[in-house]
């Protein structure tokens, strides 16, 4: 099969862009798992809420930029409500029950979205300043997609620095590693938990607004993205931010190349990749070993 060089290049750029945006969603999921042991099925719904709130805010005020600012913060508030009134009641109990709780929440949010925005497909209006395309080598590439790539990459880099270098990042990693010890040292772990959950929710909200202007916004997108991000965090190793970023890039690229070769069965490549990784490294690429 002959594939033109320019379409490979285009797919590569698309894959990196998709990967970095998915990394925004996956980052929250993996951080939440690492610290709270929560398998958050509602995380895709937070991403979806970001997109829908983005639709409303941008339509109301006619400004994409305002949507990019307000919608993620609003999603953060939703995240806080979920953590405080839902998850908090379950800490210390078998983490299995988080599946039931967050699955229930995901179903609820999907129902609410249909109720409020209807079942049809919507779209966020991308700003006029980012319209059009640019010529990169042989590829004509939309400016908006470059913008998405830039914003996602910058955010991921910032989060990486924060986790790796800042005091807050150290606190987060410490709480994930040994909650009891951090608690004993006089730090209010439950505040850290809420903070991390809200932080993850905001990142997912940003991804929702960014992709809401290039993909369609529909009630199925929450359940759709959650599988993609599960694949990412599992390949990367649950709880590992670094792993999630690498895996997101891999998933983005595989999706983009897959669409080039065999669009209808791209998912098979994804799941095969995950199965192969787990077969070789049963705890993902950067996951904690069983002894830890």
């Amino acid at each position: 099969m002959f594939v033109e060089f320019s379409s490979v290049l285009r797919a590569t750029m698309l894959g990196v862009q998709l990967g970095m945006t998915l990394a925004l969603v996956a980052a929250g999921l993996t951080l939440i798992f690492g610290m709270l042991d929560v398998i958050n099925f509602a995380h895709g719904s937070l991403y979806m809420m970001g997109a829908y709130l983005g639709v409303t805010v941008s339509a109301q005020f006619g400004s994409f930029w305002l949507a990019l600012l307000i919608a993620p913060l609003a999603v953060g508030v939703i995240g806080a409500v979920i953590e405080v009134f839902g998850l908090r009641a379950l800490y210390g109990r078998n983490p299995l029950y988080h599946i039931l709780l967050t699955f229930g929440l995901a179903v609820m949010i999907q129902g609410l979205v249909v109720e409020i925005w209807g079942g049809q497909s919507l779209r966020i209006e991308a700003p006029a300043s980012l319209a059009g395309t640019v010529q990169i080598g042989p590829v004509e590439y939309p400016v908006y997609w470059l913008f998405v790539l830039a914003v996602s990459t910058l955010l991921i880099a910032a989060v990486w620095l924060m986790i790796d270098r800042s005091d807050l990042g150290i606190l987060m990693r410490a709480s994930a590693h040994d909650t009891e010890m951090v608690d004993a040292l006089g730090i209010d772990v439950s505040k850290v938990f809420t903070g991390v959950f809200v932080f993850g929710a905001v990142l997912a909200g940003v991804a929702g607004v960014l992709l809401g202007a290039s993909r369609s916004v529909n009630p199925g997108m929450g359940f759709g993205v959650i599988i993609e991000t599960f694949v990412i965090v599992v390949i990367g190793g649950l709880g590992s931010f670094k792993g999630a970023v690498y895996a997101a890039l891999a998933v983005g690229l595989v999706t983009a190349y897959g669409a080039l070769i065999a669009p209808s069965v791209t998912d098979i490549f994804l799941f095969t990749m995950m199965a192969v990784v787990l077969m070789i490294r049963p705890n993902g690429l950067f996951g904690a070993t069983e002894a830890a």
Binding site: L100, L101, F103, G104, L105, A106, V107, M108, I109, Q110, G111, L112, V114, E115
Partner: peptide, 8 residues
């Protein structure tokens, strides 16, 4: 769906 989710 909201009711079903709330039951869970």
């Amino acid at each position: 769906e909201v009711i079903l989710g709330s039951v869970f």
